[in-house]
Amino acid sequence: STRDVLLACPMNMNPHAGSGRTAQEIWEDFSLSFTPAVREVVEFAKHIPGFRDLCQHDQVTLLKAGTFEVLMVRFASLFNVKEQTVKFISGTKYSLEELRQMGMGDLLNSMFDFSEKLNNLSLTEEELALFTAVVLVSADRSSIKNVDSVEQLQETLIRALRALIMKNHPNETSRFTKLLLKLPDLRTLNNLHSEKLLSFRID
């Protein structure tokens, strides 16, 4: 059902809330769960050197387009491939089968695939933070006004990420490439997620 599509999000603190609520009430309840996470993404962005120097329109555009991807990176550790479970931020674990019944299909499989690949890289906190900054500062998001400024910041962040990865893993030359290849995977997940959201609202 459309209700289950919404409630199956790992950020939903209350996925099995009582029925009989209006769509508006469901959205408002869910917003209480994801709003703090979105605020944390914004706080993270504010601490990226150079982010606050971008025009406000571009800051908002990057955050609107990239928040899902940042959260996906951040919550990849909630996806346990071995156990085939997802731990919601409420602490409750759901099996793959339960989540499928809640309306998560292709998106769920893709999230598991991504999480497995990212978790296998065993990034340090510093590497993960810098990678997350690279995910967020992408000059090819639509509606960016000052592409040159965003591109410049993006290049600086990519160079810093490359230097950090090379310093931490000097004998693994393909590691940086593997990490950058996660960017198109995140775009695909973002698109699948957007389709899910749209289908809910249309229904």
Binding site: V38, R39, V42, Q56, K64, L197, L198, R201
Partner: peptide, 27 residues
Amino acid sequence: CADPASNLGLEDIIRKALMGNIETKVE
């Protein structure tokens, strides 16, 4: 609306968080 971010009220949350406004409300 064709913008999923707007559907979630995401822009509103982002703008207020960027401006340091603690109180946010999703439409």
